[in-house]
Amino acid sequence: MNIVQAFFRAALLPAMSAGLIGMPPAFAQTEPDLDIDSPAIVSLVKSIANRFIQLRPHLDAGVIGLTHDGSIALHDVAKIDARALLALDALILEENRDRATLYREIARANHRPEWESDLRATFGRRWISRMPAGWFYRNDEGKWIRKS
């Protein structure tokens, strides 16, 4: 048995049968859509959509903004009073919890939990790319930018 056969029999076959390696999606004929229809994902999207009604005035006013990693964050607290800030803080916490769960659930629903951080980054890019002009976002250097 030569070294190639030894490699194939000893390492490649067991690894393939154990599912450690497989055909990378890029080599497949077409890239299928990701599954985002699980009940958990649908419920998270609904929750985020419902909360948006409360968040929108703060996004329009620049009090909060989007972040490059697919979350939201406080941007300009000088624009609201302390009581409103307390309520807004709670909203931001809930929103970011839902968003984090959403990215994790999409990765899980597609049987690739290791995709979570890539999904987060992709969603972050798309949220920012599609948000209206005038809103603020924080880039990966921590700098706040007003979208023009």
């Binding site: 690894a15 450690l20 390696i21 497989g22 990378p24 999606p25 890029a26 080599f27 890239e31 299928p32 859509d33 990701l34 985002i36 999207v45 609904k46 985020i48 959509a49 948006f52 959403l102 999409i106 690739r112 290791e114 995709w115 890539d118 999904l119 992709t122 969603f123 890019r125 798309r126 949220w127 599609r130």
Partner: peptide, 26 residues
């Protein structure tokens, strides 16, 4: 295998999924 899963992350389908979510949220 670990590197490939990051290297072969399906960017286009992920962007499409993100757009569907954004359409629903906004």
């Amino acid at each position: 295998g670990g590197c490939a899963s990051t290297l072969f992350f399906p960017v286009k389908p992920a962007e499409k999924a993100a757009d569907k979510v954004i359409d629903d949220v906004w």
